[in-house]
Amino acid sequence: MKLLEWLRGEGRIQGFLRDLLFVAVVVGVISILSQVTLGVWTPMVAVESGSMHPNMKVGDIIVIQGASRTEVVTWKEGEARGYSTFNNPGNVILYKPYGKEKLTLADQAAHIFLRRPYPPDKATPVIHRAISWVDEGEPMWEGGPAAPFAGYITKGDNNSEIDQNAGQLLGVVRESYFNEQMARGMIEEMGNGTYLDHELGYTFIRRGDEVYVIFGINYLMPVREDWVIGVARYRVPLVGYVRLLPSIVGNEIREFFS
């Protein structure tokens, strides 16, 4: 009770704490309502690149419905049904590239203000259109390699290549390193010859007797169903610049002092 009486006081500290508590309660209520209605705790993402231009622009806020609350309609299915969103057939999905966990606000703040590199086993979610579904063993594109597991083929509306064909092989992994990381439990097998190194963030793919390091958005792998965070539903122009502003300012500061 004494604490409550103290919080009701007129001092600056009490006022600041009351404001902070109010904001925390509002954010909590919004998060709970979002989870109940949309199936996600954080229903909005800011568009950070031009890969979906002009249907989604840098600085837009996109409202996401959780994957557990809806189905994903691919471009091919959308064409057959006459169903479109954001000016093209099918759904735009938010997914975790290579299944990596999302960057936290703390990760982003440390990168912007302390110049720390992003954790290698995390990545910014990608918001691209689901083009088609492939089963394990099916070619990921015409004349392309077989899918190591079932999942979605994805593409930015403004990109010339699908995500699965937008990347490169960086080289062959030393067998000693690969075996050592496997023994330490730092490499996760993602299915059918694909692996994720949680220590350094590398993505590997085994072909025959050799293991290659690969680089890209989701190169040589479809987007597994459990990597899909949700489906894009609404677009709010420009508001996302509030979310992107710290990164923009941080980059300008680094440029100035570099």
Rank of each mutant, 00 (worst) to 15 (best):
Q168A: 10
S258D: 12
G151H: 01
N88R: 15
V47W: 00
R18A: 04
E48G: 07
Q65H: 01
G167R: 01
Y195M: 00
E138N: 04
K76E: 15
R69A: 00
P145W: 00
A130Q: 04
L196S: 04
F86E: 04
N88L: 10
P89G: 03
P125F: 11
D157A: 02
E210S: 10
F149H: 12
F86D: 08
F178L: 10
I13L: 13
D107T: 09
G240I: 06
Y118Q: 02
H53Q: 07
I205G: 07
W75I: 01
M1S: 14
D107H: 12
G230T: 08
V72E: 04
S132E: 14
I205Y: 03
I229D: 06
L170W: 08
G208L: 02
N158H: 15
Y212R: 11
P120R: 13
G201R: 01
L196W: 10
W227T: 05
T154V: 14
P222M: 03
L245S: 07
T124R: 09
A232Q: 05
G171Y: 01
W6D: 11
E138P: 08
L220G: 07
V27S: 13
D209M: 03
A80C: 00
Y98K: 09
V25D: 02
T124M: 10
F113L: 15
R81F: 05
G208T: 05
L200M: 00
G191D: 05
I13K: 11
G193Q: 08
Y83S: 05
T203L: 03
V26Y: 02
G82E: 06
A130M: 08
E71F: 04
W6R: 14
S49M: 02
L169I: 15
G230Q: 07
M182D: 06
G59E: 02
P139G: 05
G137T: 11
I64K: 01
E10K: 12
Q65V: 13
E5Y: 12
R12I: 13
H128L: 12
E225Q: 10
N251F: 10
A146Q: 10
F149K: 08
M44H: 04
G82W: 08
L4P: 13
G171P: 00
Q14C: 13
P97Y: 10
P97K: 10
A109S: 07
K122T: 12
I131N: 00
F113N: 04
Y195V: 03
G250H: 06
N218C: 08
S247D: 09
V36E: 15
E5F: 05
T194E: 03
S247P: 00
I30E: 13
D226I: 01
Q168H: 04
V134M: 03
R129Q: 07
Y98N: 14
A146G: 14
F86R: 02
N87Y: 09
I162T: 11
V29Q: 13
N192E: 04
Y212M: 12
W75A: 01
G185W: 06
R129C: 09
M182T: 15
A183I: 11
K57S: 06
V45T: 11
K102P: 12
S68A: 13
I93K: 11
V236M: 12
K76P: 01
L3H: 01
H53L: 05
V92W: 05
E225V: 08
L17I: 09
E101N: 11
N218I: 01
Y234S: 06
I205T: 09
F149C: 08
Y98R: 12
